[in-house]
């Protein structure tokens, strides 16, 4: 069962760490993630090959690439959500703030309170707006109503949706529009005050106006949070990100400042992709 499987993954990766631990350099103060030689398999199919990258703090890092290139898989590995698929195996290491997240002692629940996630399709719980946002704080033991009230208000304000929902906090979140639901989901992620926010194509199910609002919000959020965003949309990556990583067939082809990557790609494959020759 999945528990057993997870443990196995950890063990294999720990063994691999022994090899790479000596060679890996310490992450600088300005990076949240240090990924080193990450390989990932779904059963026998390898989805990621020797990915190494350093994710900077309080910046927006975009991950682009054609469908099936492993960009979502990579994102979900960062908070170990990828292990929801029981047949996943990994090797290599990911350090979050200098701690290896595959280490036995490192709890994935702790990781996920530090590294929040916003999903492709808005997925509010079938509860009130208030209960959605209060869910995270509640499961981590915050029970006092006054405290929760404050957290909910602050999170909804930070997610730029407070004005739209303040009179319907106790109505079901499913009554909101898709764009509003997605911002409630962002508020839900903000409510536990994470360090990093992972966004998995957060605007692909939204209309252009909602998309613009979420993009604007991302610009606001990067003042306080480190954001990693997977996107199908290259214009979006160019608009909102500071750094961009280009994935192709499970490999990290190029990782550079967004301006450089789009204006002066070093790799032929990157150039082909951003000029629309494939994908």
């Amino acid at each position: 069962m999945s528990k057993v499987m997870e443990k196995k993954n950890v063990e294999t990766s720990v063994e691999n760490n022994k090899v790479s631990a000596n060679t890996s350099k310490k992450a600088g103060d300005s990076s949240v993630f240090m990924v080193e030689n990450l390989n990932l398999w779904y059963g026998a199919d390898q989805a990621l090959y020797e990915v190494s990258m350093e994710v900077p703090e309080k910046k927006v890092t975009a991950i682009i690439g054609p469908s099936g290139c492993g960009k979502s898989t990579f994102l979900k590995t960062l908070n170990r959500m990828v292990e929801m698929v029981p047949i996943v195996k990994t090797s290599g290491e990911i350090k979050y703030r200098n701690e290896n997240i595959f280490n036995n002692k490192f709890q994935k629940e702790y990781l996920r309170t530090k590294v929040g996630m916003v999903f492709q399709k808005p997925n509010p719980f079938p509860k009130s707006v208030y209960d959605n946002v209060a869910y995270g704080p509640r499961i981590h033991g915050i029970k006092k109503k006054e405290v929760l009230d404050q957290i909910v208000e602050k999170s909804l304000k930070d997610a730029a949706i407070w004005d739209e929902v303040k009179d319907r906090l106790h109505e079901n979140a499913y009554g909101l529009s898709g764009g509003q639901q997605q911002r409630v989901c962002i508020a839900r992620a903000l409510a536990v005050e994470p360090d990093v926010i992972l966004m998995d194509e957060p605007t692909s199910a939204l209309d252009p106006i909602s998309t613009a609002k979420v993009e604007e919000l991302v610009q606001e959020l990067k003042k306080k949070y480190s954001i990693i965003i997977v996107t199908h949309n290259m214009q979006q990556a160019a608009r909102i990100s500071d750094k961009t990583a280009f994935f192709l067939n499970g490999e990290l082809v190029e990782f550079a400042d967004t301006n450089n990557l789009f204006q002066n790609p070093q790799d032929k494959r990157t150039e082909d992709y951003i000029t629309g020759r494939f994908g």
Partner: peptide, 27 residues
């Protein structure tokens, strides 16, 4: 109950038990 709901809760650092009793059962 859609998996997206479970993922939403796991993404907030919920344990399996918390997902079962606070998301799946109510839904």
């Amino acid at each position: 109950v859609p998996n997206a709901l479970r993922e939403g809760a796991y993404g907030l650092g919920a344990t399996k038990l918390e997902v079962v009793f606070k998301v799946v059962l109510p839904a």
